[in-house]
């Protein structure tokens, strides 16, 4: 495990544990946690709060048919959730993210966004947007604006901005106030998972109509 210096907030950890975050935010939390045992321990601690809550909640009577149905399911070995064949571990992309990129880094469908920077939007529910960003070594991502929160998790290489230096496993949590110009380290191309919790806004009618088709 690499040393990780930038972690999740308690707010995100609790939301992930409670299961109330948008899918794209769950994705970036699960990806960070795959690389960070300290946040994994924090998530599991909040799960323990969920356990205590469920233990203390008022009960609602369950029918005998419900128990019978459960007994039918446990005797039905075919019912058990289909075991997904374990994918070969990827040195860059942790398991939860692999499912969203189609199997490996080579399967990512990059689209150029200028200056050699590429992105790939991942399919999640539309309450928030997840994208992979590819920033060539030494390149600065143009100042970009976004509404709401932006989370950026480094998967390869490193970048530097007004908030510090972020390397593999580090997550930057920026609100809409932060104008940042991340610059990738010169040593290596930088790959990040970025999540914005508000859908991107586009000016003009045509892009708005095209948005659902292009998934931009």
């Amino acid at each position: 495990m690499t040393e990780i210096n930038h972690h999740l907030t308690d707010e995100l950890i609790m939301g992930y544990s409670a299961g109330t975050l948008p899918e794209a935010v769950n994705l970036i939390v699960a990806t960070h946690v795959s690389m960070c045992d300290s946040c994994r321990a924090a998530v599991e601690s909040y799960d323990a709060v969920g356990g205590a809550v469920i233990e203390q909640t008022e009960k609602v009577e369950v029918s005998d048919a419900c128990l019978q149905g459960a007994l039918d399911l446990i005797r039905n070995t075919a019912w058990a959730a289909p075991q997904v064949a374990p994918r070969a571990a990827d040195p860059v992309i942790p398991a939860p993210l692999l499912d969203y990129v189609g199997g490996s880094l080579d399967d990512v469908k990059w689209r150029p966004v200028g200056m050699g920077v590429k992105q790939a939007i991942l399919a999640t529910s539309d309450e928030a947007t997840a994208r992979l960003l590819y920033i060539p070594a030494g390149v600065a991502v143009p100042d970009h604006s976004h509404e709401g929160m932006e989370l950026t998790l480094v998967l390869q290489g490193a970048f530097q901005d007004e908030d510090g230096r972020f390397a593999r496993g580090d997550i930057e949590i920026a609100d809409s106030d932060l104008h940042h110009t991340p610059i990738a380290d010169v040593s290596e191309d930088c790959i990040c998972l970025a999540v914005t919790d508000a859908p991107l806004k586009f000016k003009g009618l045509l892009p708005r109509l095209a948005q659902p088709f292009l998934k931009i």
């Binding site: 769950n26 946690v33 969203y100």
Partner: peptide, 23 residues
């Protein structure tokens, strides 16, 4: 806690109709 996590995932799957990325 274990039961809670399974119930929570079921809630996301069945009630919110979303996938739940797991670590």
């Amino acid at each position: 806690t274990w039961v809670f996590t399974i119930a929570r995932n079921k809630k996301i799957d069945a009630l919110r109709k979303q996938r739940r990325p797991e670590p």
